[in-house]
Design a protein around this nucleic acid. Structure first.
Length: 556
RNA sequence: GCCUCAGUAGCUCAGUUGGUUAGAGCACAUGACUGUUAAUCAUGGGGUCCUAGGUUCGAGUCCUAGUUGGGGCGCCA
């Protein structure tokens, strides 16, 4: 039994990650680095890190200094929840050194030996030396590795390492305050782990988005998509952390549904019936009683109805998962499979719902600006000029609100010539949304929609003509969120369902929510991909979802 | 689903009113180069011009159909 976390970390670090070089080297500096402290340190703190306390063990392994700081964050976390009896050292693995960590704390690593693994983004060989731009996936930026003839054993081979190859590198980190990059690695050893032959499609040059879409399994190795999908991860995390901090309960609503009354569009049929043999047997009708669930089933188009039932028990809840629409939509803003966040709040009205939307959007924007500054900088320069200023403006400004009636008035009085003439009581066309977001110069809520163009579950306003629905429009992504206060009055809900030909028998359980302890409540759906498009400036949904599914496209 | 534009080297593209052997940059290969950073320079290899049919003495170029991709609209998040 090994109760020494540092010792364990040392062994772990010499495992698969440093496998390229076998055993760890003896400590060249004979020193140690305070692991726990450096992990917590923010860059500005790191700069004033006392030089004397820095010592290093095996090349990239950070050891600890005293008993108080002997545990890593993860170990302390475990300790807090599982007091006693647990062997932390056997569970917690010291994370490998990454390029991200070096960029955060490079001052502290000056002159130290480091070990990295990653992929060659570019290799510029010259007669007696050369430069590899290494990206290890942990950080947007590459790190420059300098190799010299005589300083490494396999100079001639390394010169030939091609773009895309995976390599392991050992070398000394040198601070280079006068160069383009603040530091670089002087290599002592470079090993090829995986070659990348000359037909590797991703080259250090501009590729079209269309080409990269057809290489969706490789495109995240480019600057653009590396940035997009890291932001996607951060946006997702921000959503959970925003709602979790407000004590929302995360509900996993079903993917397969037996109801086709969700009313959000065409659905994908789920079946185990053997369609070929049905066709061959010449069957005129399909007996869904013989299907897997004993009834016709589909992929969900929304978890809203189910999550409403959880809101009637937990008060504040949300779903966050994939959603499927079989619409034959061919636009930059639609996909057949996408991710949606659907918060639902009890004892709340439309105003509360709008406040939540605004807070959530701002929280996400702030999180991405804080956590992905390099990525945002890149989007600002190469994707959407002025993106950063746009996002900062979003944070600084309250969202505007307009009723549907007033929005139509604005359009009518705008003097613009629209292809679709704006008419009171009718829906907004895409060109109308675009005009409104320009007019208000940022996100705008459009509320109180005509009841005939909205869903049956939306609460009828006192005017009897409109419902308490709201769309949040943003420049570029169009409708980012769509929400409403729900109709909690059973009689009103029933008459609306009758009006709109929604079958009561499938939704008996939904109606029960109004019968037993019903209360006013509201919620909304946010398209994850539309949020990502908004914060990155990337204008095609197919470029913000890892493997996009659209009509006639299900490759990968 | 409707409208529209495009498909030429591994990638990004040029290719004139139809005319001889279809070009460039990057990538790749070989060489040069003592600090490059989408390095640079020299040399070289690399093409079913999306597919099928048609017009023509002759088609990368014109016509028809198909196919794949882009953009706009509708449906929505």
């Amino acid at each position: 039994m090994d109760l020494d976390p540092a010792g364990s970390a040392r062994r772990n670090a010499c495992g698969p990650r440093s496998g390229a070089f076998g055993r760890p080297r003896p400590d060249p500096q004979g020193g140690r680095l305070d692991a726990s402290r450096s992990r917590e340190a923010r860059p500005e703190e790191t700069r004033s890190f006392p030089e004397g306390s820095l010592r290093i063990a095996a090349p990239h392994v950070v050891k600890v200094r005293d008993r108080a700081s002997r545990r890593t964050d993860a170990q302390r976390h475990f300790k807090r929840y599982f007091q006693g009896g647990i062997n932390m050292a056997s569970i917690v693995q010291e994370p490998a050194l990454t390029v991200r960590k070096l960029y955060q704390e490079y001052q502290a690593f000056g002159g130290k030996t480091v070990v990295l693994s990653g992929w060659v983004r570019n290799n510029r060989g010259q007669k007696e030396f050369g430069f590899i731009d290494l990206n290890d996936g942990s950080f947007f930026e590459t790190i420059q590795v300098v190799y010299e003839d005589g300083k490494i054993e396999n100079f001639k081979d390394v010169q030939k390492f091609r773009v895309g190859s995976s390599v392991a590198i050992e070398g000394i980190l040198e601070l280079t305050p006068l160069m383009k990059q603040p530091f670089e690695i002087k290599a002592r050893k470079i090993d090829l782990l995986g070659d990348s032959p000359e037909d590797y499609p991703i080259q250090p040059k501009r590729h079209s988005r269309e080409f990269l879409r057809e290489n969706a399994h490789l495109r995240m190795r480019t600057n653009l998509f590396s940035a997009v999908f890291r932001v996607r991860s951060e946006v997702s995390f921000a959503i959970h952390s925003f709602l979790n901090a407000r004590d929302f309960v995360y509900v996993h609503t079903p993917i397969i549904t037996g109801s086709d009354a969700e009313g959000a569009g065409e659905m994908f049929r789920v079946t185990t019936l053997e369609l070929e043999s049905l066709v061959k047997s010449g069957a005129k009708e399909i007996d869904f009683g013989k299907d897997f669930f004993g009834k016709a089933t589909n992929l969900t188009v929304s978890g809203q109805l189910q999550v409403e039932s959880y809101a009637m028990a937990y008060r504040n809840v949300y779903t966050f998962g994939p959603t499927f629409r079989a619409e034959n939509s061919n636009t930059q803003r639609h996909a057949s499979e996408f991710w949606m966040i659907e918060p639902e709040i009890a004892f709340a009205d439309l105003k509360d719902d709008m406040r939540l939307q605004e807070d959530m959007v701002k929280y996400i924007v702030n999180h991405v600006l804080t956590r992905c500054p390099k990525e945002i900088e890149f989007f600002d320069s190469f994707v959407e000029k002025g993106l950063k200023a746009k996002l900062e403006h979003v944070l600084a400004t309250p969202f505007r609100t307009v009723t549907h009636h007033d929005a139509i008035e604005i359009l009518i009085k705008s003097g613009e010539t629209f292809e679709n003439t704006p008419v009171q009581g009718e829906d907004l066309a895409t060109e109308h949304e675009k005009y409104l977001t320009r007019h208000f110069n940022g996100p705008v809520f459009v509320m109180d929609w005509p009841k005939d163009i909205k869903a049956f579950y939306m609460r009828l306003n006192d005017d009897g003509k409109t419902v308490a629905a709201v769309d949040l429009l943003v420049p570029g992504s169009g409708e980012l969120c769509g929400g409403s206060q729900r109709e909690e009055r059973l009689d009103m809900l029933l008459s609306r369902m009758k009006e709109m030909h929604v079958p009561e028998k499938d939704l008996w359980w939904y109606l029960d929510l109004r019968r037993y302890g019903g209360c006013k409540h509201a919620g909304f759906g946010m398209g994850l991909e539309r949020m990502i498009m908004y914060v990155t400036g990337v204008d095609n949904i197919r470029d913000v979802i890892p493997f996009p599914r659209t009509p006639r496209n299900c490759e990968f």
